[in-house]
Nucleic acid binder design. Sequence first.
DNA 1: CCTAAAATGAAAACCGTTGTCAAAACTGGC
DNA 2: GCCAGTTTTGACAACGGTTTTCATTTTAGG
Lengths: 145, 145
Amino acid sequence: MSGTRVYGIGRGEGRPMTSRRAAVRETLSRNDGFRSAQDIYAQMRADGAKIGLTTVYRALQTLAESGQVDVLRTDDGECVYRACATGSHHHHLVCRNCGRTVEVAGPEIERWAESVGAEHGFTAMTHTVEIFGTCATCAAVASAG
Amino acid sequence: MSGTRVYGIGRGEGRPMTSRRAAVRETLSRNDGFRSAQDIYAQMRADGAKIGLTTVYRALQTLAESGQVDVLRTDDGECVYRACATGSHHHHLVCRNCGRTVEVAGPEIERWAESVGAEHGFTAMTHTVEIFGTCATCAAVASAG
DNA sequence: CCTAAAATGAAAACCGTTGTCAAAACTGGC
DNA sequence: GCCAGTTTTGACAACGGTTTTCATTTTAGG
Ligand SMILES: [Zn+2]
Ligand SMILES: [Zn+2]
Ligand SMILES: [Zn+2]
Ligand SMILES: [Zn+2]
């Protein structure tokens, strides 16, 4: 056998960083808020990149699996991604208008979720916590408009 | 003009409760966990009800809009519904295996979300908080299996 | 009953996403 | 550089949950 490739060891990092994946991550990290696969694809094509939509979808889900980007679903079922600054567990405060996002830690939330589960005999807890609001900039624009 | 219909007054209750909607709500409330439109449809048909899938979809979203049922999205993008006991704001502790759901209040979470938003100049805050875990019954079955 | 308006449901359209598969790019060994 | 085996890529075709369409049925007054 030849061409054997040694994959990463750490959890999630089961794939090499190809040039396309790097480009997708790079494009995503130029955005502040959460962006959809199609957004990123459009942005990359507009920048002259040669890449297919399928590849963008795959790159984003690979990056998500390896924990390099965060994912959440919008109300209308679209997956949106963000290259967060921290790799550790956190939540998001998202402007519902412009998408501007602030990463927030919430130790008390973590404890609360854990204890609520324990109280009811649940184990292996996970949770989803997202906060939405209108950011100061968008609120100002709205009141001026 | 004839056939004028007097609609509900309360917020969200903008539609009359037709027999189909009542049947959908009734079926949903016989379930403990969150259920998809297709689940409810299959269940109703199995029970001999004469109803179309489209109507189930519409009934569920109408009930959701009027706040009579709660909605959330599964990881694979499916909308699932639940007829919760309380009409007031609450969150859910959901068994990821059997769907068994406990309604939980979290005043401290409400305050936390509000203050995090305020700290960053956000207004008109909303949030989504869901806790997932394995319930005691499912954990027992898994360890016995 | 009669009529106008709303609800219903079968089938088609929608749309984000995933699968298919042949071509292109990569990797390590020679 | 060249080769062979493997992975990635991307155009295109499904897929699946949901929504739209539109003709028919039901509802609620009068
Ligand atoms: Zn904003
Ligand atoms: Zn958390
Ligand atoms: Zn369970
Ligand atoms: Zn809350």
